[in-house]
Write a protein that binds this DNA or RNA. Structure first.
Length: 488
RNA sequence: GCUUGCGUGGUGUAGUGGCCCAUCAUAAAGGAUUCUCAUUCCUUUGACCCGGGUUCAAAUCCCGGCGCGAGCACCA
C-alpha cells in the first residue's frame, strides 16, 4: 500500500477568532446593526456592533446602522440617542457605520409594501381585538376578517391610513396560515395604529405625521431587503422573527439573508440589562445619568477608562455561540489591562494618608513613570519639607522601603532613612510628598459608589488620562479632579 | 400547553467520526523577574449533562431522559 494513504489527513488548523460567514463574497457583504434609540448603547449592544463590524471589515463589506424607532408608546425613542449612538459606534469601532437608516423616515415605504401585500392577497386588515385573536391563535381558527375580499381589505387599509380606526381597532396581518405548527407564526401582525397625537414621535420632523406604524418584524424584513442585507447576526430570541420574516419573503418572492444567532449574555456583576429600566432609575435619581459608573452603558465604561479595543477583544473572544452565558467582568478587565498597562502613567495614591517626618533622606526623589520605558518622563519630587505621606496601614510597620527612594526604620512617629540601595527583603510601599493634594478615589461596586480619600502625587495629566495607581490598580482622572477606579 | 434553541475544565471558547488520555484565553494555586499587591514569564489544578444505540472508532451521528433559555405583544 502506498505509504501516503496511511498518513493521517493534515491536521486542521485551530480556528482563531470569528468563523467565516457562509456564502460571503468579498466586497458584497452587507450587515446591519439595528438598535432602538430609546437610550444610549449599552454593553450588550456592543456585541452587535463589534461582531457585525468585524465581519464588515473582514469582507470589505458594508455596515448599516439602522434606528428601529417605530414605537412611540411602549419604548419611545430618546431624541439625543440618534447622535449619541453614532458617536458611540465610532468610538467602539474606530470608524462610523457605512450607512445610516432611520426607520421613522421611511414609514411611507413600509406603507407601500403593506399596500402591495394587501393587494396581492397575502396581507389583510384584521379588526379583531388582541384578546379575540389570541384565542383564534391557540385554537388555530381563522378570524372573521381573514376571508373577506381583497377589495374589502383595501378599503379597510385606506380607512386605517385615513384615520377611520382608533389604535387597537385594526391591525394589518400577514397571511401565513393559522395551521402553522408554531403558534408564534400564525398570521402575525405587521402594522398597527399608534396615537401619535397623544404620543408623538420625539423626532420633530416625524411627530404626529403617521398613525399607522410597522411592527419590528415587518419593518425590519422590508428594510433588510431594500438595503440588500446579505447576513443577519442577532440574538437567538429573534429566531422566530426569522421564521416569520421568511414567510413574508416567500410571499414577496424574495430570498431571506443568511442568519446567525448568539445566546443571552449576563455579566456576573450586573445581571441583565434593560434600557427602559435604566432610564427609569436615572429619571428617579437613583443614578447620576447614563454614564454613571455603576451602569452597564458604553458611556459609563468609556468614562471608567475601558478602551474600545478591550471591548472588541472581549466580544470577539466570546464569538458567536447559541449558548446562554454568564461572564465575569474580570474577563473584560483583563483585556483592558493589556490595552492600557504600558501607556498608563504610574502615580501614587496614598489612601488614608498619614504625614510622617522623614530624616536623613535625599532632597529629591526620582521615580519611574513607565516601567516599560524607565527613562521616559521620570517623576521628580522635592523632599525638602522633610515629610512624606504613606498609607496608615503601612505606617504600622517598623521597617519598610519607600519605593524608588530609600529604606526606612520607624522610630516612634518618625521615619529614619537608611540605605539608598536596596539591602534586604523589607516590604516596599508607595508614598508621596507634601506637594501632593487631597484627592478622592471613586469606586463602583455592587451597584454602589464608594469614595476613598487620600493624597495624590503631583502630576499634570489632563482629565481622561488612564493612570495606574501603584499597588491599587487602574483609574481614570475625572474632570472634577477626582479619580474613578477602572479595575485592579 | 404549543413552538424553538442550547448543554466541553470555576468562567468563556476550539473541536462537525480517528489528529482529542481534548485547544486557547481567563480565573485559582505555586514559582521566576520586577524598588508596585501591576506588567511579563514558567508550572500546576481542572471539562466533553446522563443513559442507550450505530461504528473497527463518537465530544462529534441517532434515540430517549435530564437541565437551562427563548418565542407564542397592536415592544424592540
Amino acid at each position: 500500500m502506498a505509504p501516503e494513504l496511511l498518513e493521517a489527513r493534515p491536521k486542521a488548523e485551530r480556528r482563531v477568532g470569528l468563523p467565516d460567514l457562509e456564502d460571503a463574497v468579498e466586497g458584497k457583504v452587507v450587515l446591519r446593526f439595528a438598535p432602538n434609540p430609546n437610550g444610549p448603547l449599552s454593553f450588550g449592544h456592543a456585541r452587535g456592533l463589534v461582531i457585525n463590524g468585524a465581519y464588515a471589515e473582514r469582507y470589505k463589506g458594508t455596515l448599516i446602522l439602522r434606528f428601529d424607532d417605530t414605537d412611540t408608546v411602549v419604548k419611545p425613542p430618546m431624541p439625543e440617542a440618534y447622535d449619541t449612538i453614532q458617536q458611540e459606534t465610532e468610538w467602539l469601532l474606530g470608524r462610523p457605520a457605512d450607512r445610516v437608516i432611520i426607520a421613522s423616515d421611511r414609514i411611507d415605504v413600509y406603507h407601500e409594501h403593506a399596500t402591495s401585500m394587501i393587494e396581492q392577497g397575502f396581507g389583510y386588515v384584521c379588526t379583531c381585538s388582541a384578546e379575540a385573536f389570541r384565542e383564534f391563535r391557540v385554537t388555530q381558527t381563522e378570524c372573521p376578517c381573514r376571508g373577506k375580499s381583497t377589495d374589502e381589505h383595501t378599503t379597510r387599509w385606506q380607512g386605517m391610513l385615513g384615520g377611520a380606526y382608533k389604535p387597537g381597532e385594526a391591525v394589518v396581518r400577514v397571511k401565513t396560515g393559522m395551521d402553522q405548527r408554531n403558534p408564534a407564526l400564525r398570521d402575525w401582525p405587521a402594522l398597527r395604529l399608534q396615537d401619535t397625537v397623544t404620543n408623538p414621535h420625539p423626532r420633530p420632523e416625524v411627530g404626529s405625521k403617521h398613525q399607522v406604524w410597522p411592527l419590528l418584524d415587518f419593518q425590519s424584513a422590508i428594510e433588510d431587503h431594500l438595503q440588500g442585507v446579505t447576513h443577519i447576526i442577532r440574538g437567538k430570541d429573534l429566531m422566530d422573527s426569522t421564521r416569520k420574516q421568511t414567510l413574508l419573503y416567500e410571499h414577496f418572492g424574495w430570498t431571506y439573508p443568511n442568519t446567525m444567532y448568539w445566546g443571552r449574555v449576563k455579566v456576573h456583576e450586573w445581571g441583565g440589562f434593560s434600557t427602559s429600566a435604566m432610564r427609569k432609575d436615572i429619571e428617579s435619581g437613583r443614578y447620576e445619568g447614563w454614564s454613571d459608573p455603576r451602569l452597564p452603558t458604553l458611556s459609563a465604561l468609556a468614562r471608567r477608562g475601558i478602551q474600545p479595543s478591550a471591548l472588541r477583544a472581549f466580544w470577539l473572544e466570546l464569538a458567536i455561540t447559541q449558548k446562554d452565558i454568564s461572564v465575569p467582568l474580570s474577563s473584560l478587565f483583563s483585556h483592558n489591562t493589556k490595552a492600557v498597562d504600558s501607556t498608563a502613567p504610574r502615580l501614587a495614591f496614598v489612601r488614608d494618608a498619614v504625614r510622617m517626618p522623614l530624616t536623613g533622606a535625599p532632597d529629591e526623589a526620582t521615580l519611574v513613570r513607565y516601567p516599560d520605558q524607565p527613562d521616559k518622563d521620570p517623576r521628580r519630587h522635592d523632599l525638602t519639607t522633610g515629610h512624606v505621606w504613606i498609607e496608615e496601614e503601612d505606617a504600622s510597620m517598623a521597617s519598610f522601603r519607600l519605593k524608588d527612594l530609600v529604606d526606612v526604620d520607624r522610630h516612634e512617629d518618625t521615619l529614619i532613612a537608611g540605605a539608598i540601595e536596596r539591602q534586604d527583603q523589607r516590604p516596599i510601599v508607595h508614598w508621596t510628598v507634601d506637594a501632593s493634594k487631597d484627592a478622592t478615589l471613586v469606586l463602583a461596586e455592587d451597584d454602589m459608589l464608594h469614595e476613598i480619600s487620600g493624597r495624590l502625587e503631583p502630576h499634570d495629566f489632563p482629565a481622561g488620562t488612564v493612570v495606574q495607581l501603584e499597588r491599587i490598580g487602574y483609574a481614570i482622572l475625572l474632570e472634577d479632579g477626582r479619580l474613578l477606579m477602572a479595575h485592579e
